[in-house]
Amino acid sequence: MIYLNLVNELICALCWGITIRLILIRHLNSETKVARFNTFAFVLMVVNLVVVLPIFAFLLKNLSIQSVSWLSSLVVATIDALSTFNLILFCIFSCCTRLQKCPTTVQDFLVLGAAVKHGQVPPVLATRLDKAINCWKTHQSAKIIVSGGNSTESKRI
């Protein structure tokens, strides 16, 4: 049982480590790569929900409550369940915001910037700009304001 607990915690850590890397470190230059990485992160979370969390439930039920393995299983399972729930809520919120229509009255659009490396616009910024342009087509009297700038210059000010 102790080895099952350690292996399960390792699988949990790998699933979350890779998922966090996929979310935070975006060096993707095409929508197909973004879709592939998002699909991979989704598969890791399904593995987490279908394999890791049920094994934690099994371990918590069958290990002695006074053991260190039970306590570590409880801590990791709690963090894992809360993190997975939060990621699911984030994905739902993200999908809902992408489906939102343009507001009926608009004065200006503010597009938040994102790091542009080697002259290439990252998919996050491209999506924001596309959304602003699509809304601007409906409200052409509005201005589009793009934020951001060179971070080395802003440090000197």
Rank of each mutant, 00 (worst) to 15 (best):
C12G: 03
L28H: 10
K137R: 14
P103R: 08
N5G: 11
S151R: 13
T138Y: 15
L89W: 12
L24Q: 10
C135F: 06
I157N: 11
I133C: 06
G113M: 05
F37L: 11
I79A: 15
T84E: 02
L44M: 10
R98C: 07
F56V: 05
N8Q: 04
I23H: 08
V51C: 07
A126V: 01
T97R: 15
V50M: 10
S94T: 09
V146Y: 04
P103S: 08
G149I: 02
L74F: 09
V75M: 07
T78D: 06
S73N: 10
Y3Q: 14
I79P: 03
M45K: 08
R156F: 11
G149R: 00
S67G: 06
G149P: 07
V68L: 15
D108W: 03
L110S: 08
E31M: 14
V51D: 00
I20H: 07
R26W: 00
V43P: 06
A35S: 07
I79R: 02
L22Q: 12
H139T: 04
G119L: 05
L49P: 00
K137M: 13
E31G: 09
F85Y: 15
F109D: 00
A77N: 07
S147P: 09
P122G: 00
A77W: 09
L125D: 04
L129R: 03
N150I: 12
S69G: 03
L53S: 09
K131W: 02
T97L: 13
S73R: 00
V52R: 01
G113Y: 00
Q140V: 08
M1G: 08
F40S: 09
R21S: 14
T84G: 01
I65N: 07
A132W: 00
I23N: 12
F85Q: 04
E153N: 13
C12P: 04
N134A: 13
F58P: 00
G113W: 05
V121K: 04
V51M: 09
L74T: 08
R26V: 00
A114H: 04
A35V: 05
V46D: 03
V68T: 14
L44R: 02
F58W: 12
V146L: 14
H139C: 06
I144E: 02
G17A: 05
F40N: 06
I25M: 13
V50E: 10
S94I: 01
L6E: 15
I88P: 02
K61H: 13
W136G: 01
F109Q: 00
T105K: 14
A57N: 13
L4A: 08
T32P: 04
A13V: 03
T19M: 04
L87H: 08
I88K: 06
L53N: 09
A13P: 01
A77L: 05
E153G: 11
